[in-house]
Amino acid sequence: ELREAFAKVDTDGNGYISFNELNDLFKAACLPLPGYRVREITENLMATGDLDQDGRISFDEFIKIFHGLKSTDVAKTFRKAINK
């Protein structure tokens, strides 16, 4: 299930999730959020999830993000976006 969610976000299939891919995910989900809020959520996920600070999120980092977000608003938003 997590591998499928990761693949859905990794639209270019390079094995990593970029800032733009995350941002595009939230935009495509048509969530009722202003653009600046989408950017804040994306920046927050990148800042906390990109553990090796290479500017992208690997599958291992994605798993840690996903499990670390349990019930936060960001987690709910992220799950809604993935499930669209």
Rank of each mutant, 00 (worst) to 15 (best):
E1R: 15
E1H: 04
L2T: 01
L2F: 05
L2Q: 03
L2E: 01
R3L: 06
E4M: 15
E4G: 07
F6N: 00
F6K: 00
A7E: 09
V9M: 08
D10R: 01
D10Q: 01
D12Y: 05
G13Y: 01
N14L: 05
N14T: 13
G15D: 02
Y16P: 00
F19T: 11
F19P: 05
F19V: 15
N20S: 12
N20R: 09
N20I: 02
N20D: 14
E21S: 05
E21R: 12
L22C: 02
D24T: 08
D24N: 08
D24M: 09
L25W: 04
L25T: 01
F26I: 10
F26V: 08
F26H: 01
K27R: 10
K27V: 07
A28G: 05
A28C: 06
A28Y: 12
A28T: 07
A29L: 15
A29R: 03
A29N: 05
L31F: 12
L31C: 11
L31I: 14
L31E: 10
P32D: 15
P32E: 14
L33K: 04
L33F: 14
R37E: 07
R37M: 11
R37K: 14
V38K: 05
V38W: 05
V38F: 08
V38I: 14
V38H: 04
E40N: 02
E40G: 03
I41T: 02
I41C: 03
I41G: 01
T42K: 15
T42G: 05
T42A: 11
L45A: 09
M46S: 13
A47C: 07
T48M: 09
G49I: 06
L51C: 07
D54I: 06
D54S: 12
D54R: 09
D54G: 10
G55F: 03
G55I: 04
G55V: 05
R56P: 03
I57H: 00
S58E: 02
F59T: 02
F59A: 04
D60C: 04
D60V: 03
I63C: 15
I63P: 00
F66K: 01
F66A: 09
F66Y: 15
L69Q: 10
S71N: 09
S71Q: 13
T72P: 12
T72H: 11
D73H: 11
D73L: 08
D73G: 11
D73T: 13
V74M: 12
A75I: 07
A75F: 07
K76A: 12
K76G: 12
K76T: 14
T77L: 07
R79Y: 08
R79V: 11
K80C: 12
A81V: 12
N83Y: 06
N83T: 14
